[in-house]
Nucleic acid binder design. Sequence first.
DNA 1: GTGAAAGCGCTAACAG
DNA 2: CTGTTAGCGCTTTCAC
Lengths: 351, 351
Amino acid sequence: MTEAVSRPTLEAVAARAGVSRATVSRVVNGGDGVREPLVTRVRQAVEELGYVPNQAARSLVTKRHDAVAVVIAEPEARVFADPFFALQLRGISKELTAHDNQLVLLLTEGRADHARVARYLAGGHVDGALVFSLHLDDPLPGLIRNAGVPTVFGGRPDWSDGTPGPVYVDSDNRGGAREAVRHLVGLGRTRIAHITGALDQTSAVDRLDGYRDIVGDADPRLVVESDFTPGGGERAMRELLDRCPDVDAVFAANDLTALGALRVLRETGRRVPEDVAVIGFDDVLPVAEQADPPLTTVRQDIEEMGRLMARLLLRGQAGRPGRPGRVGEQSADEAAAGVILPTTLIRRASA
Amino acid sequence: MTEAVSRPTLEAVAARAGVSRATVSRVVNGGDGVREPLVTRVRQAVEELGYVPNQAARSLVTKRHDAVAVVIAEPEARVFADPFFALQLRGISKELTAHDNQLVLLLTEGRADHARVARYLAGGHVDGALVFSLHLDDPLPGLIRNAGVPTVFGGRPDWSDGTPGPVYVDSDNRGGAREAVRHLVGLGRTRIAHITGALDQTSAVDRLDGYRDIVGDADPRLVVESDFTPGGGERAMRELLDRCPDVDAVFAANDLTALGALRVLRETGRRVPEDVAVIGFDDVLPVAEQADPPLTTVRQDIEEMGRLMARLLLRGQAGRPGRPGRVGEQSADEAAAGVILPTTLIRRASA
DNA sequence: GTGAAAGCGCTAACAG
DNA sequence: CTGTTAGCGCTTTCAC
C-alpha cells in the first residue's frame, strides 16, 4: 500500500473551486483581475487541498526560476577559517528570502570545478549569480561572463580589459586602511609598519594603497608581504622586527594576521600598545574581541554586503549579457558599477 | 537587436544529428540501448550546439530534482562565529557535486521562518533535506518530518516520542569528552572541572555525560553551566575559581569556551598547564592553534560529517515518510539510525 | 534499436 | 472578468 501522496495540481484546485485552471493560476499569482467571490473560493480550495505550485512546471513556461546561484570559489581552507562567508551568506539569504528566491550554493575546489560551475550557470538553471572570487588570476569571472547570466561580484574583481565594468559590492578597503593608519599617526606613532594580505586579492592591494596614502614614501622596509593567516602574520612580524627594531605601530591586513603579530610581539617582550600599537582589519569578533589585548580593528559590515549584492541582482542592476528574466530587468543604459560600503574603526586596547 | 540567445533544445540536437528526440534523450541519459554510430553522432551534435538539458522540463516528467536542501536553523550569531557550518557545507557540497545534485541552502532566523521552510520542503522542490537544528526545544524537526521528505540530521536530534529514530550523523561527543578527561586524569589531575556548553543542545549534554563517565560523582561544584561562547567561558571560569580555588584542570565544552577560560586563568595569575590544565573541543584551528598556550582539544572531522550526511541521503538511508524519488530508495525495513563519527585528542600545550 | 506520440503542471495569449 | 487553448522541453510507453 504505497500511499502515493501525489500532491494536488492546479486542476484539482480548479475542480474543487468550480473554476478554470486559468483562474486558479491568476489567484495563486497575485489574483489581479479576478473578482472577489472567486478569489476567496479559490484561496479556500488551495488551503483545503494544501496546494503548492509545481516550480518545475512554472519555470518551464515562464523561463524564470526564482533561484540565484551563489558561487564561492575559494580553494583555500582559509575561507573557512573566518566567518566571512557565513555572514555574507546570511545577508544574501535574508534578501533572497524576502523576495521568494532560492539560494543555490556552488562551492568550488579549484579549477577542476570551474567548468562545472560555468556549465551550470550557462544551463539556465538560475536567474542570476552572486560570485565570490577574489583572486586576481582567477579565470572563473571570465567564464561566468560568458555564461550570459546576470552577475554581481563580492569584492572588486580585477578586470583590466575594456569591457563595461562588472557590478560588484565591496568594502571601502582603502578608506578603512587610511583611517586605521591615520589613527596610528594620531597616536603619535612615527614608525608605522604594514603587514599586507595576499596581494593577489584586490582587498589586500587596496589596503596597502590606503596605507601608502597616509604614510607616503615611508621606509619601504616597513611593508612586509604576507597572506592573511596567523602563521603568516608571525613570520612577517619577525622579519619586521629584524629589519626595523624601532617599529612602533603595525597595521595588519586582517585580524588573523594581527593575531600572529601580537603573539610575536609578546614573545619578544614588547608591550602592546605601549611599545607597539597594533590594528587589524575585519573585526572578526571571536578573534578581535578575544585577542590579548583586545584588538583595535577596522570593521566592515559583511552581512550588509551580502544583502546588497542580492538586492542589486534582484533589482536588475547586474550585468546581463544574455537572455531576459525577472532578475536582470535593468535599463540598457544603466551603468554597471561597484558599490563601496563604508568601514568603521573599532577602538579596543591594542591601539 | 536583442540576440535572443535561447538555448538549444533536444529538438535542435535531434535535427542536427538526424535522429529523433527520443534517441537524443537516451544518449544524454547514459545512452543505453542506442547503437554506437548514433551515440557518437548525437554526442557530437550536443557538443557543437552546447546543449544543456532543461532541468525544469526534466523534473516535470521525472519528478526528480537532483537537488537537496540544506536547512540551517540557528537563530544565534554564534553559528557564524566558528567555521563549523562552513566545513559541513563543504563536505556536503563535495558529495552532492559528485552525484550531480544541487545544494539549496535554507537559512532560518528563528521560528518565523519555520513555516516557510516546511512549506518549501513539502512543496516537493527537492529530493531530500539535510537538517541542522541542534536545540532540544526546536519545533523544526517535527515540521520537517511532516513534510514527508527524506531527511538526515546533523547532530543527534532529541526526539523522545516513539517514532522510528531519525537518521543522523554526529560526532562521538561523549567518547571524545571521556578521552579528554581521561587524559587529564593521566596527567595526575584530581580536581577536574567541566564548563558545559548550552545544555539545550545534545552535543553539550553528551559531552557532560562523557565527563561524568570518568569523574564519577566528583564534587558537583566542579561543573559550571555555560553556553559555548568565550564570554560565557570567562564567566564560568570566574565562578569556578570562586567555588573551587583548588581546581587543577578544566575540560571546556568547546574551544571558544576554553579561550575565555584561558583568559581568566591568565588574569588571575594561574599558569597553564602547570597550575591548571585546559582542554577544549572542536579543534577550530584559528582558535585552538593560536590560543596562548596552544590548546589541547578534541577534534571532530566536521567535513566528513557533512559528506556522510549527504551520502546517507543520496543512498536512501534517510527516513522517507512520503513519496518516492531517486533519493530515498531504501528498503522499508532499513533501520533508521545514527552514525557516530570518532573524535581524536589533539595534544598541544595547554594540557 | 529507433521513432512517434502522449503527456508532466503550469502560464499566457486569445476569445467570449 | 473568466474560460479555452496552446504549448514550454523533456521522458517514456508503445509500436514499428
